[in-house]
Amino acid sequence: MGDGALSVWERSSTVRVVPPARPRKLAKVPFVELADGRLQGVVSSGSDIGRVYVSSVAAGSYAFACSTNNNRPCGGAHGWFCKHIDALVTEAVVQYGVERVARYLKVDVTAADPGAGDVIDAMTSTHPAQGDRAAAAQVFSRFLRHLSYLELAPTTAPLPEMHWFPTTRAVA
């Protein structure tokens, strides 16, 4: 847009939010996102209410990582997807829909009526390797940031930390 006209997204101060494919319960997987070339999120422990797992699967290679919130490796993620990664994929399919998750992860799902199990089966059939747990801290930090917004009182006033959203002013 070299003529000085601003595009629609440049004139807007909002970002389009994609509604969930289906409503989901947040108790087991409170945070799931398709970001940074991975499906990643936070999964609650089934045995300890104070523990969560930060799990991820890389798009294309399906390299996976799972560790606790204090960066201890998951006991079930040795050479195969653990139950936390299975739960993460399942909730991602509920949140985003199977087509979007499969497309993002670069999974070829050939089932007539595909579901989360088909996405998991397609990835594990390639025998993915364990990936780097380095991103876990960033994912967990983003999760905690999202939780902090839940503690705020309802308001229409701007939030200073959200200053990075696009504005209507042209940058010189």
Results as ranks from 00 to 15, higher is better:
53 Y>V: 02
1 M>Q: 14
82 C>H: 09
44 S>C: 11
96 Y>C: 05
38 R>A: 06
85 I>W: 00
20 P>N: 08
68 T>R: 02
58 A>W: 03
15 V>S: 06
13 S>I: 09
78 H>R: 15
138 Q>H: 12
67 S>W: 02
143 F>Q: 01
29 V>T: 07
24 R>V: 04
59 A>F: 00
59 A>I: 03
1 M>H: 15
64 F>N: 02
143 F>D: 03
40 Q>H: 12
168 T>V: 10
60 G>Y: 13
83 K>N: 03
138 Q>G: 12
7 S>R: 15
69 N>C: 09
104 Y>H: 05
52 V>A: 07
95 Q>L: 14
114 P>F: 06
129 A>P: 00
152 L>F: 11
161 E>G: 14
98 V>D: 05
7 S>F: 14
60 G>W: 12
90 T>H: 06
128 P>R: 12
132 D>A: 14
94 V>M: 11
50 G>R: 11
37 G>E: 04
34 L>N: 02
163 H>W: 08
54 V>G: 07
9 W>P: 05
102 A>R: 04
122 A>I: 06
20 P>F: 01
110 T>K: 10
96 Y>A: 03
149 Y>D: 08
121 D>E: 10
103 R>G: 01
57 V>C: 06
171 V>W: 11
24 R>F: 08
103 R>M: 00
66 C>I: 05
21 A>H: 15
72 R>N: 09
66 C>P: 00
132 D>K: 13
26 L>E: 07
82 C>P: 08
90 T>P: 00
160 P>F: 02
157 A>V: 11
35 A>E: 03
63 A>N: 12
38 R>C: 02
49 I>G: 03
52 V>K: 00
26 L>Y: 01
1 M>R: 15
81 F>T: 04
30 P>N: 09
27 A>S: 15
63 A>F: 08
66 C>W: 04
71 N>R: 12
57 V>I: 14
5 A>E: 13
146 H>Q: 14
64 F>V: 10
57 V>P: 01
20 P>W: 04
59 A>D: 01
112 A>R: 15
31 F>V: 02
82 C>D: 09
150 L>S: 14
161 E>V: 14
171 V>K: 13
117 G>Q: 01
135 A>G: 12
49 I>K: 03
75 G>R: 03
4 G>E: 10
124 T>H: 06
